[in-house]
Design a protein around this nucleic acid. Structure first.
Ligand code: FES
Ligand code: FES
Lengths: 153, 153
DNA sequence: ATATATTAAGACCTTTTTATCTTTTATACT
DNA sequence: AGTATAAAAGATAAAAAGGTCTTAATATAT
């Protein structure tokens, strides 16, 4: 029931692409890494993998970079998680039991399950585009930068 | 927003102690490790730390082992988590943002927050004893053993 | 064609987490 | 006192996660 840091980076960055990139406006790893505040060589690796998984797209060379096609935009956040962490990991029991299911529930299963269904539903049923739109219209934060001291960043 | 494996082991084992141990019935690491199905040298380390943190008790020598005093039984699950992982870890943002709070919410903050309050409330407000009682009366599972194929275990 | 910018691939390093092993210390029983 | 038993302490090892670096490939623009 938890995301690796890699997944987190991948989700934030892909949502960033959804908002800021297009087939005519490609964005380099460095630019994204700076905006989200993640280590760029690490993000580069993740992006390679997401490209192989057809979740994002890339082109090399000058004016190249990463972007989302119409196709990519129909993917869901869960596809990112699946691609980076695999699905088992996020379905794990909160207390580490072998199986997370109602027939052999751990002490907190019935607290965790509704939440899991809720968030997984969102990750599964909303497209990347829908998710990104919701984010920008609701003013959600998409960076790992420290926003607590609003000095120069 | 996640527990380490160490915390999970510690929680399950302490709840096991709550149900099965007493000042006159002390239980060895090996016995617990077998019941819960965790690596016993690792659990031994965790228990050392919980003893230092006054969350569980121990005595050495023959018929020695681990157990809970009345005092120990008044502790809460959150004390175990705090002792092993520290509180920061479980309060972390689900997507890794620097701060998890409503003024700079990540895209899933308002799904996560109610769940977090719910489960943390349980971990904070119920004593170990209460928790353990609830568990046994509701038939919750307290082992990491594989229960899917109900052959000999 | 050439230079340049950018991703792709793969090897490598570091840190954290998980797990084990060995030796010492305390307790209880005879 | 002597012996057996169990935890405490500390050193060490193995695995996983996170992160970096170097070189190759490829697309673009001039
Ligand atoms: S969360 Fe533990 S069994 Fe479902
Ligand atoms: S869960 Fe992300 S900000 Fe609260």
């Amino acid at each position: 029931m938890m995301l690796s840091r890699a997944s987190k980076y991948a989700i934030l960055s892909t949502l960033f692409l959804a908002e800021h990139s297009s087939e005519t406006r490609k964005i380099s790893v460095k630019e994204i890494a700076n905006s989200i505040d993640v280590p760029s060589p690490f993000l580069a690796k993740l992006f390679q993998q997401l490209v192989r998984g057809k979740i994002i797209s890339s082109t090399k060379g000058p004016n190249g970079g990463f972007y989302l096609t119409k196709r990519n935009r129909k993917k869901a956040v869960i596809d990112i998680i699946e691609n980076i962490d695999g699905l088992e990991k996020i379905n794990e029991c909160f207390l580490g039991l072998n199986e997370c299911d109602g027939s052999n529930p751990c002490p907190v299963h019935f607290i965790v399950e509704p939440f899991k269904n809720n968030i997984m539903g969102k990750f599964r049923d909303k497209t990347i585009t829908e998710f990104a739109e919701e984010i920008s219209s609701n003013g959600r934060v998409l960076t790992l930068k420290d926003l607590t001291t609003p000095k120069k960043q």
